[in-house]
Amino acid sequence: MSQMKSVQTAGTNQVDVVDVDRPVPGPKDALVRIRACGVCGTDVAFLHMGGMPARAHLGGDLVPIPLGHEPAGEVVEVGADVTGLKAGDRVVVNPQAAPTGIIGCGGRYGGMSEYLLIENAEVGTSVAVFPDTVPFDVASLNEPMAVARHAVNRSQAKPTDKVVVLGAGPIGLGAAIWLKLRGVEHVVVVDIIPSRLEKALAVGADAVLDSAEEDVTARLTELHGEAANALGQPRPGTDIYIDAAGAAAVFNTVVDNAKWHAKLVMVAVHKKGSDIDLGGMLRSELTLVPSQGYPTEIFEVTPDLVEHQSRFAQLISHRVPFTEVERAYALALTPGAAEKVVVTFDDVAE
Rank of each mutant, 00 (worst) to 15 (best):
M4A: 11
V7W: 04
A10Q: 05
V17E: 06
V18E: 07
R22K: 14
V24Y: 10
P27C: 11
K28H: 14
C37E: 02
G38W: 05
G41Y: 06
T42C: 09
T42N: 09
M52V: 03
M52W: 02
P53N: 08
P64W: 09
P66L: 08
E74T: 13
D89L: 06
V91M: 05
V92Q: 03
P95Y: 00
Q96I: 12
P99C: 07
T100W: 10
G104M: 03
G104F: 00
E114L: 09
Y115C: 01
L116N: 03
L117Q: 00
L117E: 00
A121F: 02
E122N: 10
E122R: 13
D132A: 15
V134P: 00
D137M: 08
V138E: 02
V138A: 06
T160E: 15
K162S: 09
V163H: 00
G167Q: 06
A168L: 08
A175F: 04
E185Q: 13
E185T: 05
P194Y: 13
A205K: 05
D206T: 07
A207T: 14
S211H: 14
E214N: 08
T217Y: 01
A218V: 09
A227Y: 06
A228Y: 11
N229A: 05
R235N: 07
G237R: 00
I240R: 03
Y241I: 10
I242M: 12
A247I: 13
W260D: 13
L264H: 04
V267Y: 06
K271T: 10
I276D: 09
S284L: 05
T287M: 13
F299M: 01
E300R: 13
P303H: 11
F312K: 04
A313D: 14
I316Q: 11
V320K: 00
F322R: 00
T323H: 05
Y329M: 02
A330K: 09
P335L: 10
